[in-house]
Amino acid sequence: MRLLTHNMLSCNIKGVTNGFPLIIEAEKVLEKPVDLNPDFLRNMFHKVEWKALVDAAKSLGYSELPESVDPAMLESPEFLHRFHHALLELHLEEGALVCPETGRKFPVNKGIPNMLLHEDEV
């Protein structure tokens, strides 16, 4: 699971209001290089919740993202490279996503998060 996907996921348990971002417990992290596309990054920049991405990257051991950002940074190749790496090249392969409100753990195996709920959570 890439961190862009992590940035799209919230806890889906009925009644939970602060289910985003899910806290990452990483057991195994992979890096898979992909081509960098500045247009894609510029487009995604406005959709990504920045602090969630920074914290998620840190929990995968990558702390090169600036804590605060502004769109002017998209002109910097160095910034784009780091943003690209955190968003698309880091993969949570094994671990869990933890709901910040309830502590419920959603397992991630072979890079696939399991968001299925138990009957009493729907």
């Binding site: 996907t5 940035n7 799209m8 996921l9 919230s10 806890c11 889906n12 289910g19 985003f20 919740e49 696939i112 998060p113 399991n114 968001m115 299925l116 709920l117």
Partner: peptide
């Protein structure tokens, strides 16, 4: 993602 339809993705 293993989920019911798109549960967990709707909000974001």
């Amino acid at each position: 993602i293993i989920t019911d339809i798109v549960s967990g993705l709707e909000k974001r």
